[in-house]
């Protein structure tokens, strides 16, 4: 019982770290509003990595899906991507490009981690569009680019946003280890125990956790908003509730 209270006590200290400023052992101020600078760096890093990943993976996924080529390669990138540890990828960039700025190195590493789910989901999303609808569009005289833009893209949007959601949550989580190579994100209090103390470690963990869950919930809402009415009708009310965490039946296993 007393252990539970002690635990609550530490969580209490952590919450106070989130909201109020204090001095660390070295006399410099941490906590409270100083967390905002860490949060800003965290968001900047995540946004840069996601922007880069989407710029590469979305067009590639749509085009490959449209043509249906390189199926095996596209699907396996996401399997291989899962196996590469984030810390190894970041270390690889740091070890092989010691001269380039840390922020750039970490952004590139995070973008590489974010590409596979987006690419695979975009590819599968386009492949799974109703072939009859595509044939009908062709019959109406739409060009290849028009088919992608007006038929395949809207029908694939739910899966595409599923991939973006997976990658965003993953990037926010992984940006936490960026301080290991000198990019000061919200992970800094986690790895710099001597500077921030225990309440800093736990407090920053709470912020990261809330950030990841907020991204998941927010992007799920976007995903529902962009789902075409026709697909919602097809799924019915039960299917809609269950598609949230990827419980829908899919022919090809994609990232959740």
């Amino acid at each position: 019982m007393s252990a539970t209270f002690a635990a609550l006590g530490e969580f209490g200290d952590a919450i106070s770290f989130i909201f109020s400023e204090r001095e660390n052992q070295r006399g410099s101020p941490v906590g409270g509003s100083h967390n905002l600078a860490l949060l800003w760096e965290h968001l900047k890093l995540s946004a840069a990595a996601m922007g880069l990943a989407m710029a590469v993976a979305l067009p590639l996924g749509l085009i490959l899906g449209h043509t249906g080529r390189f199926s095996f390669l596209t699907i396996s990138t996401s399997n291989v991507g899962r196996a590469v540890p984030s810390v190894a990828l970041i270390a690889l960039f740091v070890a092989f490009f010691p001269r380039s700025p840390e922020f750039l190195n970490v952004t590139l590493a995070l973008a590489l981690l974010a590409i596979p789910p987006i690419l695979t989901n975009a590819y599968v999303g386009v492949r799974q569009t109703d072939r009859d609808a595509v044939d009908a569009a062709r019959g109406m005289g739409l060009s290849g680019a028009q088919v992608i833009r007006q038929v395949e893209l809207p029908l694939a949007l739910p899966l595409i946003f599923g991939g973006i959601k997976t990658s965003t949550v993953n990037v926010i989580a992984t940006a936490t280890i960026a301080p290991l190579v000198g990019v000061v994100t919200l992970g800094d209090p986690l790895v710099a125990f001597s500077v921030y103390g225990r309440e800093g470690q736990i407090g920053a963990s709470i912020i990261v956790a809330v950030l990841a869950i907020a991204a998941e919930i927010g992007l799920s809402a976007v995903q529902r908003a962009v789902t075409p009415e026709g697909i919602k009708l097809e799924r019915g009310p039960e299917g809609r509730a269950r598609s949230r965490f990827g419980l829908t039946k899919r022919r090809i296993q994609t990232a959740p």
């Binding site: 252990a3 002690a6 635990a7 530490e10 969580f11 949550v169 926010i172 989580a173 992984t174 936490t176 280890i177 992970g187 986690l190 225990r198 470690q201 736990i202 920053a204 963990s205 709470i206 990261v208 956790a209 990841a212 869950i213 998941e216 269950r242 949230r244 965490f245 419980l247 959740p256």
Partner: peptide
């Protein structure tokens, strides 16, 4: 699905430190 989904979403690095007091 919701509960395991939240556990899945929680960054594991954050979870390491959230479990520290326990």
């Amino acid at each position: 699905t919701q509960i395991t989904g939240i556990l899945y979403t929680l960054p594991s690095v954050a979870l390491f430190f959230l479990l520290l007091p326990l």
